[in-house]
């Protein structure tokens, strides 16, 4: 049965889901799309963000979104340190392609195991006054546990897009994988540029993780469910385009929500790859790719 109410609620749920996907995908869009670093561990950093939010929320009752924002600078330094290790161990010696991938795989497992040791394998939740609330606008039902993450994710995307397009460092991040030597000739240190970029990418995971645990309960290995979908979103949006990633995330969210509403939730996860393959057949550079 196909009713108008069902339709607009499916769209709204999809937009909100897509907004959250964007929060997770933005960081990968920077590492994978701009730096050519296949950070397969990115969703695991998101889960780390969820557990930070969980621990602090449980102990002090602080709002999870606020925790996510406050931890962004700490995750930023974590990301910078991570790049430094990656650079010294792999990039410097030119082994980044295969050993680099193994490094991020290993990192993913180590982080996961550490989180399992610390928190066990149970699903964890956060509490906030708005989590059970729903905003009703006419026939629209907007659960705040979906709406607030979507709004926060959109604001974060806007901030990252502005940084990339308005600052010298942002432009250098866009340029560094195109011609590293030419970037040096502009007076920029490519190592520093990449360190800052990975710092920003991991910083977004702090907030994305807090948003995730508002939406649903989290256990340490739940991040793996997102890896395929998030890579699909980045490629679909167009490598190197942050705003493209955002719109691709929204698109995937809406289509998944439609499928879940009208055909059943079990089909939804296959949708991302279906759209990705279809798009790449017609537009190999992705929806918003530059070249």
């Amino acid at each position: 049965m196909f009713t108008f109410d069902l339709l607009i609620n499916a769209v709204a749920a999809g937009l909100m889901l897509g907004g959250f996907y964007a929060a997770v995908a933005i960081g990968l869009s920077i590492t994978f799309g701009q730096l050519d670093i296949v950070n397969i561990a990115h969703p695991t950093f998101v889960i780390l963000g969820s557990f930070v939010a969980f621990v602090i929320n449980e102990s002090f009752g602080i709002d999870p979104v606020l925790i996510g924002v406050v931890f962004m600078p700490i995750f930023y330094f974590l990301g910078m340190g991570l790049y430094q290790i990656y650079y010294v161990s792999f990039e410097k010696t030119g082994q980044e392609s295969l050993s680099g991938l193994a490094f991020f795989f290993g990192l993913m497992f180590i982080l996961e195991v550490l989180m399992i040791l610390a928190f066990g394998v149970d699903y964890r939740l956060v509490s906030a006054a708005y989590i059970g609330e729903t905003l009703h606008i006419g026939p629209l039902d907007l659960p705040l546990r979906m709406l607030i993450p979507a709004v926060a994710a959109t604001l974060m995307t806007i901030a990252v897009v502005l940084y990339m397009s308005k600052t010298f460092m942002g432009k250098a991040i866009m340029a560094v994988s195109q011609d590293r030597l030419a970037l040096q000739l502009m007076g920029a240190d490519p190592i520093r540029v990449k360190r800052i970029a990975l710092g920003i990418a991991i910083a977004t995971a702090a907030l994305a993780g807090a948003l995730l645990i508002i939406i649903q309960p989290v256990e340490p290995s739940v991040g793996r469910l997102y890896i395929g979908r998030i890579f699909a979103i980045v490629v679909l949006g167009g490598m190197g385009s942050i705003s493209g990633t955002f719109f691709a995330a929204i698109l995937i969210g809406v289509v998944e929500s439609f499928i879940a509403t009208f055909y059943g939730p079990s089909w939804a996860p296959a949708v991302g790859f279906g759209i990705l393959l279809l798009t790449l057949a017609i537009r190999p550079q992705g929806l918003f790719g530059r070249a």
């Binding site: 010298f168 432009k171 250098a172 866009m174 340029a175 195109q178 030419a182 970037l183 190197g240 070249a291």
Partner: peptide, 13 residues
């Protein structure tokens, strides 16, 4: 040049 950046972005860099 940075081929996938615009002329202006190249100049700004």
């Amino acid at each position: 040049l940075f081929p996938a950046l615009s002329v202006e972005e190249n100049l700004v860099l």
